[in-house]
Nucleic acid binder design. Sequence first.
DNA 1: AATGAATGAGAGTTCATTCAT
DNA 2: TATGAATGAACTCTCATTCAT
Lengths: 200, 200, 200, 200
Amino acid sequence: MLGNGTEKYSKQRQAAIRAAASVFAEKGFHGSCTKDIAELMGIKQGSLYYYFKSKEEALGEVCLYGIQDYVEHMASISDSDQSFEAKLIATVTSHLTSYRERNEALKVYNDERLYLPKARRIKLKKLGSDYRQRLERIFEAGKRTGAVRQSVDCHFAAQAVIGMCNAWGDLIVRDSELDLFEVIQKCTDLLINGFTTKTQ
Amino acid sequence: MLGNGTEKYSKQRQAAIRAAASVFAEKGFHGSCTKDIAELMGIKQGSLYYYFKSKEEALGEVCLYGIQDYVEHMASISDSDQSFEAKLIATVTSHLTSYRERNEALKVYNDERLYLPKARRIKLKKLGSDYRQRLERIFEAGKRTGAVRQSVDCHFAAQAVIGMCNAWGDLIVRDSELDLFEVIQKCTDLLINGFTTKTQ
Amino acid sequence: MLGNGTEKYSKQRQAAIRAAASVFAEKGFHGSCTKDIAELMGIKQGSLYYYFKSKEEALGEVCLYGIQDYVEHMASISDSDQSFEAKLIATVTSHLTSYRERNEALKVYNDERLYLPKARRIKLKKLGSDYRQRLERIFEAGKRTGAVRQSVDCHFAAQAVIGMCNAWGDLIVRDSELDLFEVIQKCTDLLINGFTTKTQ
Amino acid sequence: MLGNGTEKYSKQRQAAIRAAASVFAEKGFHGSCTKDIAELMGIKQGSLYYYFKSKEEALGEVCLYGIQDYVEHMASISDSDQSFEAKLIATVTSHLTSYRERNEALKVYNDERLYLPKARRIKLKKLGSDYRQRLERIFEAGKRTGAVRQSVDCHFAAQAVIGMCNAWGDLIVRDSELDLFEVIQKCTDLLINGFTTKTQ
DNA sequence: AATGAATGAGAGTTCATTCAT
DNA sequence: TATGAATGAACTCTCATTCAT
């Protein structure tokens, strides 16, 4: 951290993170330049370095911002005692809503995190794995209660849910007119039909 | 001054496309440099320009190479008169197998095509849309025959299939030990259960 | 707007000079940054400018501080009426002791003064020449009294004494465990043997 | 090494080393900029990097060039079977002549080598120590033959010779009108008188 | 068909300096 | 007396691209 926790400082730093997210999301990490980020904030290029030690650090902060509260969300979902279906719906909803809200940051996390220096990447990867594991455990519990078909591979299932959410997340970011709730509903419909036992 | 259809020339050009695909896939378009591509081919940086007018052109060729025959494949699938389920299985199989075979190029098409100049991007987009539309029509036919549930949104469904295949494609490219056929089987299982009417 | 002779002000300014000396000595003028100087003083970068108009001015002050009293010392040596040998010993002692005491500043004067703006450099050069001339005159007097061999070139001799002292000064600054008095003794031994007539 | 050993390449690289030496000698490593070096060669700034991976590498090459053949020279002096006095004269002559010939490079080695990355610095330091040790051994041999006074500290003596030569070397580089042979003669005169037994 | 050499534009980064508070 | 925030110029370094050979 450069500045000391002034109010103004942290406000500006947050603004810097959002600006970086926006630029990285549009042009990719290597395709972006710090000048663009600074301009989006209304400051000069050199001033950016008052808030970030390097472009790479900016990427790190964006990625962290991108997944942070969506991972936290998952924790509270997996800790709750809802039914399998309710949890799956909550997961998809949380995931896709995150895309709408911190849209660029989350996209950046997905597409650009591999350009992070190793140390940072590993720290983030743990967060990501955490997310996947909790989801896996939801599926496992579903199998035990009979909600999920016995033939389902829980690891595969978790991966598939995440993959599909990210794919739609991308579309959501790109097309701001997409009806979020419709997408959520159709995704959960597919997944529930795809994984649960047939009980009608 | 670019080579006039010599045998050697087109062989080398093909090699150049594959080298570019490999490098772009690993580092992204902006993160790659022409020197890396040249080195992978065993020639010198300047010599690349005998095969490509620019780095951008190289990207264009890679992207084209990446989707071309996977789109053609889809054409033959959609024109066949198999059942809905057979077509869906064939689609997923073709899509994921493509990833294994021309893995890098297809990944590049997915991740980097937006850095192409507009004209080129539009041409490719048509190919991509074509693919999606054919898939949509497969779902529509499925609905008519009753194989697919009436509540399914065919546009959504096509998008979802593509999204899931790409997400798994990414994992396949990154982890060469993943069992391709297992992935295919589980994906189709999920999709068929997710979209078809329950008939057992 | 610079401080008006407050007690605290001049104390802090002196601290600033010493801090600058230390940093310049270690990293050279161009290799140093104002932030390092400020940090060494325990203030912030911007605050330095309360004490110096510019980085260059700081260099000037350090250089001045570095030679000032060592030149004054020479004045009192050369004005005394000791023998040639005593004066030579006193000179070497004063010179090398200066290095131990205000080590960094003197080193900075030697190594970095050429980065000063012309005006300032000339002013300092006069001080340096003064020193050398007094030393030369000591040698000349030595020749007249017969203490120094007639073949000795006094200009050369003075330059040589200074050169050797600076060379050892450098080693003294870098290696704080060097025995100062041993060095002094060996230097004077060499010089006296080298320049005086052989009288044993 | 970047280029392959073309004739032109190595000629240009040598030119680059000399240009760098000249600029570093005048302004110090941190005070110099690569643009100045390139301009002195008659090429553009960016082209410099065809010959050096970095500014630091340039410094390393300059330093190496600066001491290399002067160290080699010392080897042949110390291996010869001349008298102590002859060897001392040869040493001073070689050292100071080096300054005239590769003047800037040698000055750079003396003043700027500490800005080299550790690995490189150590390699050069070995060369320098080698030089000093050979000189020390010449003094030791001198003591055994009785040419050098028994009270002389050989380590100190070697250091002193080097220090004095470097001090004069600096003056030689700065003032091209200085008569080199006169300086050599006076230095050796001082040193011989300073260190040898009095035999008149 | 290929290369060595060079270029020029632009990137990230550093830093002395300013100034309102 | 001191600081946080910002600036702008300079610097090192990278790279797509060109072209004579």
